[in-house]
Amino acid sequence: MNVVRVEGLTKHFKKFHLGPLNFKVEKGTAVGLVGSNGSGKSTFFRLLMNLVHADGGTVEIFGKKMPSSEIEIKQSIGFAANMLEPFYQLSIKEISSHFSYWYPSWNQNKYEDLINRYKLDEGEKFGKCSTGMKKKVDFIFSLSHEPELLLLDEPTAGVDLGSQKKMKEDLIEFLEDGEKSLIMSTHLIDDLKQICDNIIILSPNGKVQDFLRKEEVEENWAKFWVSELTEELRCHPHVIKVNDSQHPSYLLTDQKHVVEKELREKGISVISIQRLPLDEIIEFQLDS
């Protein structure tokens, strides 16, 4: 079952076009959103939440259409995307009373546990909080009303290492029962490796460059160190990159088994096969 379904979603700005975006998020999965600065990640979240209006396309969340079921949908979404600035004069506690009023499913115990866990002072004015503290407050508010879907825009950016670890644990726990889903943007490779099941790569011109499934990456992507590289291999549809400026040469493939068979048939000896680390694949996709 799909929790989020986006079709042909577009947004045009003067100098930047986002989309058309097409993707689905399966229930119980975590999707990581990566892309360089200015590739439209924050706009992506705002479009999903109907905070900026799309120029085209459709968004369906929990099987219901945005924006016609907007309020109903948003009751079950935890959204953290640096949107609390307007409350800078209020204390964390005062903001929490607004949130508990807005969300019928607000869980005060959970909220208090999280405030303690992240060692925040509820009496502090939001405007006085450091960047990292603001991120933590944002994160806590997104979780405290027991959402079904979390949309987090760079939740770990600017957060100290200890708290990053706690956030990771909290997100893993959130995903544990397989009923809830997550979309988060991040620049940290460890977030992708340790939390996300699938990865959406946004290209600098605002398009979905690739949708990677972690299990497919593990199964199919590889680096082959080989004794020689033939012209045929260089042009092979599943050889996506070669490096023969050094010896031994290597090639990257997104179809390990096909290329392995090909190498065996051509009598080219394989010195070593490595699984490709995610960062190398993402780097490659962002460069191409």
């Binding site: 340790q194 499934r213 972690k214 299990e215 593990e218």
Partner: peptide, 16 residues
Amino acid sequence: PSIRVLSSDLSCSVIT
């Protein structure tokens, strides 16, 4: 450990 937790520790997919 649960499947989710072990996958996270090993940085591998839940399916694996």
